[in-house]
Write a protein that binds this DNA or RNA. Structure first.
Length: 373
RNA sequence: GCGCCGUUGGUGAAGUGGUUAACACGCUAGUUUGUGGCACUAGUAUGCAUGAGUUCGAUUCUCAUACGACGCC
């Protein structure tokens, strides 16, 4: 079966929603945070460890798996779940973001047909089209596939965004036509930058195509202000159906997650917890800390008091600082576990708060403690 | 004892008679939002072994001293 989204309730005081998603690989509760496993692995963690962090779902990336090992190999191995030994649901990104990301430094060639660009591995010329992206995702056999969209930079002007929104709609339609996997849901993506009319248009037109869920894209790009991100959400959500799940792509700063939930978002994903972990930083309820800092040299406390993760239950800051400073991968691994657990725990607490209709109180209390400086 | 060479920051080292002493590593701090990232950004010697001299001016020239390397007796 395809996924099924069940809305359980909405917080009385805001748009925060409590729900769950039924999939062939079990049910996951929303709001939720999805760790990123770009190349069929959440960097440095085993599936068991990801599960132990409380995550029931992960994200994998179409572009990267297309290049290596190739979707046919994954298919031969029995699909992505079997291939990577992950028995929970998997969401695949369409590759749209990679095109944007690759095009940041190099010349991109976005045409009506698709996007021409060069492989980051060997420089060979590639063409990714809406049809190709869906075909790859079908073969990967993820539970949730994304439409192939254009993810414009935050600096794009109105005219560019308008054209981009229209092109993304045409691409969504083309992708939907070739989508064949009966066990895989397909999401449409809302674009339009921070502009109210473009978001409205994009959302309404995308919803008309009747996707299994809806993503809000084009946010969290470099240089984008928080205000623009929140606008993008505010201007998209009202036009999305209540009974379909909403996914804010690429967002994972704790504050942004709470802001998103308050505005009606159900799913988040982000590389932040694992990336900053590899660079020595950890989320805590009082803000982000940097284990590189010399003040932790002799600190025998855990990364965060009261945290129930494997890292905090067994290791000191002094030890982790040492690992990070001598470049041992175990340090980043421990912090990845902690950071993912931190965000998952955040969503667990949020779900309870929504149950009690006190999400806004929870959010206020969290923000009071969480220093960004 | 004599000869010869050397002595620049935490480390390896560039360099010049004249405003701010290159670069690298390290160290310190910051950044990171659908992962081309173990990456990026910034800071880090008021001082060039010590003392004296030459000079308008010396880390750069001269002499002495200390320390170190090498060679000879």
């Amino acid at each position: 079966m395809k996924i099924k989204y069940n809305l359980i309730k909405t917080d009385k005081n805001c748009k925060a929603r409590l729900g769950n998603i039924e999939t062939n690989y079990g049910t996951v509760e929303t709001p939720m945070f999805m760790p990123v496993g770009t190349r069929a692995t959440v960097k440095s963690l085993s599936p068991e460890e990801v599960l132990e962090c409380g995550s029931g779902i992960i994200l994998a990336n179409t572009y990267h798996l297309w290049l290596r090992p190739g979707e046919d190999i994954v298919k031969k191995c029995g699909g992505l779940h079997k291939f990577m030994n992950w028995n929970g649901p998997i969401l695949t990104d369409s590759g749209g973001f990679q095109v944007f990301s690759l095009a940041k430094n190099k010349k991109k060639d976005i045409t009506e047909e698709g996007v021409h660009f060069k492989s980051h591995i060997d420089g060979s010329k590639l063409l990714l089209t809406p049809e190709k992206s869906i075909e790859i995702q079908n073969k990967l056999d993820s539970d949730i596939a994304m439409s192939f969209d254009e993810c414009p930079p935050a600096s794009a002007d109105y005219e560019y965004l308008k054209n981009s929104v229209e092109r993304t709609l045409r691409w969504a339609e083309r992708g939907k036509k070739v989508h064949k996997n009966p066990n895989q849901a397909l999401f449409g993506i809302v674009q339009g930058g921070p502009h109210e009319d473009l978001r409205k248009f994009s959302a309404e037109e995308t919803v008309k195509m009747n996707f299994d869920g809806y993503s809000i894209g084009g946010v969290a790009n470099d240089g984008e202000s928080k205000e623009d991100m929140y606008k993008a959400i505010d201007y998209s959500i009202p036009y999305l159906p209540e009974d379909k799940v909403r996914y804010l792509m690429g967002v994972g700063d704790p504050i942004d997650i709470l802001e998103g939930i308050m505005r009606g978002v159900d799913i988040f994903d982000c590389v932040l917890p694992t990336r900053i972990a590899r660079h020595g930083q950890a989320f805590t309820h009082t803000g982000k800390i940097n284990l590189n800092n010399s003040k932790y040299k002799e600190d025998l406390s855990s990364v965060e008091d009261g945290c129930d993760c494997y890292c905090c239950k067994n290791y000191t800051k002094a030890y982790i600082r040492h690992l990070i400073s001598v470049d041992e991968t175990f340090g980043g691994r421990l912090l990845s576990i902690h950071n993912i657990r931190f965000l998952i725990r955040l969503t667990e607490e949020v779900r309870q708060a929504i149950k009690d209709d006190r999400f806004l109180d929870y959010k206020r209390e969290f923000l009071n403690k969480y220093k960004t400086k």
